[in-house]
Structure formats: C-alpha cells, structure tokens
Amino acid sequence: MLNLIWLGLLVFSAITALLTGNLKQLVNSVPDSAMNAFKLSLGLTGIMALWLGIMRIAEKSGLTEKLSLMIAPLMVRIFPGVPRGHPAIASMASNLIANMFGLNNAATPFGIKAMKDLETLNSAKGSATHAMCMFLALNTSSLQLVPFGAIALLAAGGSKDPTIIIFPAIIATSFSTISAFCIARIMSRMKRYQD
C-alpha cells in the first residue's frame, strides 16, 4: 500500500511539474527535503531520550504494574465476556497502561499475550470475540497521554512552545477512546456480529 502511495507521489509530482513548469523548483526541493529529514531526525534525539529515560523509571519502579492492577476492576466492566481473575484481564490491563505511557516496546508483547489469553475463551476459532474487538478498538483509538514523538518533532523544527500540544492532545485522544468504546459496545449488540 505504502509502496504504491510513495511511487504515486513521485510520478504524479514529476508529471505536474512538467505541466506547470515547476521543474526547477521540484528538483531544487529534493536535496533540501533530504537534508531537512536528517536534521529533524537527529533533532528528535534529545526529547526521545528524555522521555524514554523517565519511562524506564516508571517501568522499573513498578508504577506501570501498579496502575495495571488498579484498573483491573474497571476491566471487568469493559470486558463483560472475560471472567474475573482470568489472565487476559492482567495482560490487557498491562497493555493499556503501557500504551497510555507510550511504552510501545512493552505494549506489543503484552498485547499479543492478551490476544492469546482471550483466544482461550474463544469457542469459534478463527473468528474474533467481542472482547477481542473491544480490546483492539481501545488499542487503535490511541491511548497515549503525552504524544512525545510529535513534541520532539516540533522541538526539532524550532518551536517556541512544543509542549503546548499536550493538553489539546489529551482532550482529543479522550474523545477518540471514549467513542471507540461506545462504537464497539454498540456494534457488539448488532445482530450480524452474533455467532
């Protein structure tokens, strides 16, 4: 998919430049863009390192684990098909908390374990359960509280106040997560998705 989009951008740009007479601008933009990409990437290092360092402390101090335990009672309500005390509750909670902190490297293994735990409750192999759909809906709605990738990029680009986006991003991400929950809940009751 991305192969096609990327190639399409290159070819379409070249054709447009020939038709509009912007060939010189087009060619001149190439080295500038490549240089900018390199500068921006290196500029990400500082804030990435800072955030990853802080998050390592959150992991090592047991804070993320503690928060996962704290949301377990809530999990039982979000996932009515999963019995209390089932291992899926713990693995899903760990995944959701890791995602909230932006710990992508930790979130993925927890998420895969959660899917395997949920699969043990699945009576129709090869077909998703309601709990799986809810878990993925929450996961794909963006849970990350502080979007440090975007902050790092703004800082690398020379922004005066790169952290200003934290508050608006938390509000927007809350909307998307709450709506993911509602949509998954509503769709789980639709006739066509019953087994």
Binding site: W6, L9, T16, A17, T20, N22, L26
Partner: peptide, 13 residues
C-alpha cells in the same frame, strides 16, 4: 516521506 511530499508540494500538485 519528506522528499516525496516535498516534490509533491513544489511541483504545484
């Protein structure tokens, strides 16, 4: 991405 989108922008597309 920056090169491709940069070309897209500078071409007028």
């Amino acid at each position: 991405i920056l090169v491709a989108v940069g070309m897209f922008r500078s071409s007028g597309a």
